[in-house]
Structures are given as structure tokens and as C-alpha cells.
Design a protein around this nucleic acid. Sequence first.
DNA 1: CACAAGACTTTGTCAGGACAAAGTATTGAC
DNA 2: GTCAATACTTTGTCCTGACAAAGTCTTGTG
Lengths: 250, 250
Amino acid sequence: MTSDPTPVRPVEVDRTSPVPLYYQVATRLQELIESGEIGVGDRIENEVDLADRLGVSRPTTRRAIQYLVERGMLVRKRGVGTQVVHPKVRRPVELSSLYDDLIAGDQGPRTAVLSLAVVPADATVAAALNLVPGAEVTWIERLRYAGDEPLALMHNAIPLDVRDFKREELEVRGLYELLRRAGRVPRMATQVIGARNATLAEARMLGEKRGASLLTMTRTAWDDRGRALEYGSHLYRAARYSFELNLSAG
Amino acid sequence: MTSDPTPVRPVEVDRTSPVPLYYQVATRLQELIESGEIGVGDRIENEVDLADRLGVSRPTTRRAIQYLVERGMLVRKRGVGTQVVHPKVRRPVELSSLYDDLIAGDQGPRTAVLSLAVVPADATVAAALNLVPGAEVTWIERLRYAGDEPLALMHNAIPLDVRDFKREELEVRGLYELLRRAGRVPRMATQVIGARNATLAEARMLGEKRGASLLTMTRTAWDDRGRALEYGSHLYRAARYSFELNLSAG
DNA sequence: CACAAGACTTTGTCAGGACAAAGTATTGAC
DNA sequence: GTCAATACTTTGTCCTGACAAAGTCTTGTG
């Protein structure tokens, strides 16, 4: 016995608002699902009826539903209907979460800039940023703290044309924010997560014992036009840090 | 001086094909970009003209372009046009790549099933799979090899109602394939990647020294209807394995 | 020459309609 | 009763048409 689809109750769209209709509908649906009014496993009203009742066209309704399907909240099946599969938005791994270490620099955890200099790129950096070997880059070394304890040792290389960095700004605002202010917004990134044992020097900086397990993460980020923006090579204390990913398959 | 948009040359859509038109167009565009006929930074023809020339409607063309935008190959700007930002498809982290360790079991690397038994779920497993503590699950322990060398030690817990597993099948087909055959397709997953030093027992199984750095990955996967499908807790030799992710921000 | 107003280009949103395809439920024949 | 054919529901694809909004380029004014 299949349960009847839950009708979406009082919903009105605001046609004077600059917010697109499909987005208004999607947001409303999302609220209903997150609040539990439409539970996991429930079917929602079919597109045609929903569109009618909201007073919008079917394409608009479809687009709203599609938006939530892509976010992993809903699943559609032809001939069957649209079902809630998850009450929370499961983002398909966002750059924002990827950059949380940088964003977070704006708020809580303290970040110390250990060094900031213009140096010639070594082979690895040059390859990652698609530069000619020996081209100059801004090289940043930072130590991130969580409370009093060191958490991560972060190295970044940024092409010279991206921006001129100042130490104080970097400590206060964080790398990500500075890039954004320069109008260079990351659009794409590849990252590799691995692990290895700490060297003596690394262990000392991070307050670990030699040989302690460290998480390694290297990342290259590109902007809108495919220009390399940033190369990062970071070390995290494995005992105090892990990466969390939410994935969805369409 | 902006360069003229590259016209997409001989393209025809096949209306007798069961492949959707928008997908045909997207595939054709993708080929042109991957082959380099349309280079990074080039603008492609505008939607309206493209649609005209292909003999399809603008919404269909838009959908094709949208598809490639979501994959990170193209970027659109209102009033400007659509530009190529990356010549290869950068998938936003797929479940398929997430499951490569399982899929790969079908082909190259050998996987030995160390144990396969029905046991009561411990607290961690029960919580991850959303079961009552003590409920029975199929518990699988496997050792993955790359060539002659051990690569990973994998533990999985699968709710009993999902499927009845046989050792031989598991060795030959891999877990993922067996789940798929049971009609339980993973749609969503959360995973946590961390690291720690190997215990003596783990080191022995993996052919490492005690204290060697290991990558840890725990994952819970859900199917279509939000039912927990699989919990996995895996250990990888950090010296021989790393996770690669491609991310895009919309 | 500098700068603002306007024209133009291009993508973004939205409507309404039509038919196809994939499930589900019902009906009918044996 | 069982099973296959049929009807029905629901999403998937595709079309035409229209206007809005955000850039870019041109033009004209001071």
C-alpha cells in the first residue's frame, strides 16, 4: 500500500520579488522537508498538480524539484513520482567546504603567518600552476591553531599577477577572502588527500612526536577562466583533523 | 579585443535515436572541447544561433550547455557569452569514483575475503546504519592487493535484508556489483577521511612496520529511498594510496 | 579626452502545450 | 486463481514564444 502524496500546504509565490520563482518554490519545499512536514520516504505531489496549485508553470515546478534532486533531497522516478530521500541538503562536496580551512581563518582559529616571500617556483609548483619553471610566485607558510594547539602547517603558492599580499591582511582576513577581494574566485579545484609520518622538523612545529601520522592535502584551484589561482600543500595532525565528504550520484 | 566565438562545425542531431537531443548536443560539444577544436578561453557560439544551426530549440541547447556547465567545462555569463574553462570533464566527485575500490575488485587488483559472517552490530555500526544496537549485520573483512603487495584492509557491514552474500561471489564480483545485482544502488554517501599510525596487528597484515602512517576512510552509503546500504571502515597504506577529488563550485 | 546615456548582445526566467516512456493498477481471458 | 493485455499516472523530452537582466560597445555631450 503506497501512502498518499503529502500535499504542500499554503504556498504562495511572490511575483514582485527579484528571487526567481523556481527558487522560491524550491526553498519552500526544502523548508517543508527539513522541518519534517514531509518525511523521508513520503512522496510529494506530482508536478502538474503542484504547478497548478502554486499558480506557476510546470517547467518552473520541474526546475525547483530538479534543484532539490541535484542536492540529494529528492529522487524522481518516471511513472511513480517524486520521493524524499534525505531530510538535509547533502551538498555534493563544495568548494566552500573544501576551503573551510581558509574561510575559518576569518573567524575562530588563529593562523600565524610564518613566512611570506616571492620566490621562484620549484618544479612541483610550476607544474601545478601551469607556469614556466623558475617563474616567481608568492610563497606563504602558515601555522593554523585550534585553541592553543597547533593543528596544521599550510604552504601556498600564488602566481604573482593574482595579488600583492601583506602579512597583516593575511593574518586577519585569510587567504580565501583576499583572493575574493582581488576578484579571483575559485571555480574548480583538484585535491589529493594522503598521509605520511611526520619528520622531526614537522613534528616539532606541530607539537607531535616524530613519526606521528599526518594527513596531507595538496590542492590546485582555478578561477572562472581556467587560470591557476592557488597551489596548496598542507599538513594536518591526523589525531586532530579529518576530512568529511558528502557525495551523491545522479 | 575579444576573439570571435568558435563556430561548432558539422553537427547534426539524430532524431530517430533514443538518445535525448540535449544529450547528443552536449556530447558533441564535449568532444569538440576535449579534442581541442574549441580551446580553453574560447567563447562558444551563443545559444540562439547554435540552436538555429543545429535545428533544435533553444531550451534544448540550453540544457546541453547547462550539462557541461555543471561538469565544470563551461562557464556562462549573462550579456557576455559562454566560455570554455576546462578541457576535461571535472566530475564533482562521483559515487563511482568513491567506489572505485569496490568496482576495481571486478577487474585488476585481487581481493581476498578474510572473513564473512553474520554478527550483531556494535554501537558504531548500528549508529551508522541506523539500526537498533545488537541487530545482526553481515560483516565482511577483506584484504585488497595491488600486484603482490597488500594495499588496503577493508571492513564492511551490510544490513541483513540487503542481500545474502557468498564468499566466492564476493571475491569474484566485488561488493558493489553484488549490491547492484540486488537492486540496491547507492545514491548518497558520507565519508570521513583521516589517518593514524598502524598497530602491530594492522602493520603485519598490510606488510608495513608498526607505526606506519595509514589512511582511514569510513563511509556510509544510502540507496534511493534513504535506506542504509553499507557501512565501511577501511585502512589504506598511505605510502601506496591517496584519494583524488575534483571539485567545482557553482 | 573623459564620461555618461543609450543601443546591442547574450544569457536568465517563465509560460503553455504536446507527445513519449516507464511504472503501477486494473481488467479480462483461460 | 494466474497471467497477460490494457488503462492510467507520473516524469522525461521537446517545441515556440516572450520578456528581463547583465554585460559590452557605441555614440554623443561637456
